[in-house]
Design a protein around this nucleic acid. Structure first.
Lengths: 71, 71
DNA sequence: ATTTTTTGTAAAATATACTTGACATTTTGT
DNA sequence: ACAAAATGTCAAGTATATTTTACAAAAAAT
């Protein structure tokens, strides 16, 4: 799976560590790491919580126009 | 949880049954039903597949500005 | 250079998304 | 009114998202 660089960038822009973001979103640091590294397929509610914490929208962080999205 | 009326509407606009959409997205009819009725918290990849099948984006079908989003 | 913080990753356990099969109710077509 | 198609829902099973604990490597700070 592909890394989520937009998310990593948005987090960096707010100067948050993975751990700080994890706490805001009430999830584990490992989960944040896994999402950023594209190691899996998070729940939409988690994505929404991450977006809110980072001041972005779903399209901005999780949508890509280009085809892709293999199983 | 809240029903996803936007999704229901988008599906209706294409004149697709839950079952037809389910097949396009390679998921069960029950799963589509559950998502529309807000009975749970789908995976983002499923949301993306649904969006693609319905010609909409994540923000259009799954994002709401207003607060909300209880656990 | 050496602490301290941040990040990657892994194995085992738990929670929950999703499936399968089945039946009841609602809606649509005739 | 009747039949057919579409939808709601439930229980039991399987797959996988997320947690917990833990350790090693990379980056930042002093």
């Amino acid at each position: 799976m592909a890394k989520n660089l937009r998310m990593k960038a948005a987090r960096a822009a707010l100067d948050l560590s993975q751990d700080e973001l994890a706490k805001k979103v009430k999830v584990t640091r490992q989960t944040i790491s896994a999402v950023e590294n594209g190691d899996y397929n998070p729940t939409i509610n988690l994505c929404i919580d991450i977006c809110r914490a980072l001041g972005k929208t779903l399209d901005e962080l999780f949508w890509n126009d280009e085809g892709g999205n293999k199983k």
